[in-house]
């Protein structure tokens, strides 16, 4: 069993990673990388099925047990199955005009029930959920932001410059500075651009260099079998 659950998965990891690395260095093997990438996409699509199956399993149990909030689990199941049926069956979607006799030849996301679910349910719900973060970010900032030291002042000041520099208010606040004068660069809209182009660029570059080094070393550890945490407990 150890061979099936440890040795073979480690071998697969190493080989798959090796193929991807080789495909970047040798032109002859570049197709291998593309094929492995396709394999990855297909398995990732199956992961969605796994996710859907898990969702069904958990919420069917909640409904059958009638545990607390089982009604909402029912809503999840109904919405999930409806979206799935409408989307996989392309219900109401127009066929491809070049092949009008093939019902499933049309675009999934441009017409029909699936488009409706996306346009009037999925999109407004997710957009509203993300938009609510504006309130929470503002609330958290109000509570947490205190100009206690120089670093905190820098963070707070930059956030204000960026926020004000991209609004009408920011333009008005420093409107008295002539844009063509020697101090034109101190206008908030100009300052915001300068902060983004210079300080933000430098900071982000260093962060990206750090991230890339971190990812490269983690990847090496995984491919060489040093890091086996993805195989579960015991390693």
């Amino acid at each position: 069993m150890q061979v099936l659950t440890r040795s073979i998965p480690l071998l697969i990891t190493g080989l798959a990673g090796l193929v991807m690395i080789l495909s970047a260095f040798f032109p002859y093997t570049s197709d291998w990388g593309k094929i492995a990438g396709n394999f990855f996409n297909i398995i990732a699509a199956f992961a969605f099925v796994l996710g859907g199956g898990n969702l069904l399993k958990i919420h069917l149990k909640k409904v059958s047990d009638q545990s607390e909030g089982w009604g909402y689990s029912g809503v999840i199941l109904v919405c999930f199955i409806t979206t799935l049926v409408v989307g996989l069956g392309k219900l109401g979607a127009y066929p491809n005009p070049d092949f009008p006799n093939v019902r499933l030849s049309g675009e999934t996301q441009s017409s029909g029930g699936f488009w409706w679910a996306y346009e009037y349910v999925f999109k407004p719900l997710t957009a509203t959920m993300f938009s609510m973060l504006a309130f929470y970010v503002a609330s958290a900032a109000f509570r947490a932001f205190r100009a206690k030291n120089f670093e905190a002042i820098l963070l707070l000041g930059t956030a204000f410059i960026i926020l004000l520099g991209r609004t009408f208010a920011g333009v008005l606040v420093t409107g008295f500075i002539s844009p063509d004068g020697p101090l034109g660069g101190l206008r908030l809209e100009e300052l915001s651009v300068y902060v983004m182009q210079v300080f933000n660029t430098a900071g982000n570059r260093a962060i990206m260099i750090g991230i890339s080094l971190g990812i490269a070393s983690t990847s090496l550890k995984i491919l060489l079998g040093i890091d086996r945490s993805f195989l579960g407990s015991g390693d």
């Binding site: 396709n38 996409n41 297909i42 990732a44 699509a45 969605f48 099925v49 996710g51 859907g52 969702l55 909402y72 689990s73 809503v75 999840i76 199941l77 109904v78 919405c79 999930f80 199955i81 409806t82 979206t83 799935l84 989307g87 996989l88 999934t108 699936f114 679910a117 996306y118 349910v121 999925f122 719900l125 997710t126 959920m129």
Partner: peptide, 26 residues
């Protein structure tokens, strides 16, 4: 209720996209 709807619809949405955009062509 809205939260449950978004969970159900998004799970179904990504499965459908995965099927038509990845499983079918690849």
């Amino acid at each position: 209720f809205a939260e449950s709807v978004v969970v159900g619809v998004s799970a179904g949405y990504w499965m459908v996209i995965g099927f038509w955009d990845v499983i079918v062509p690849n």
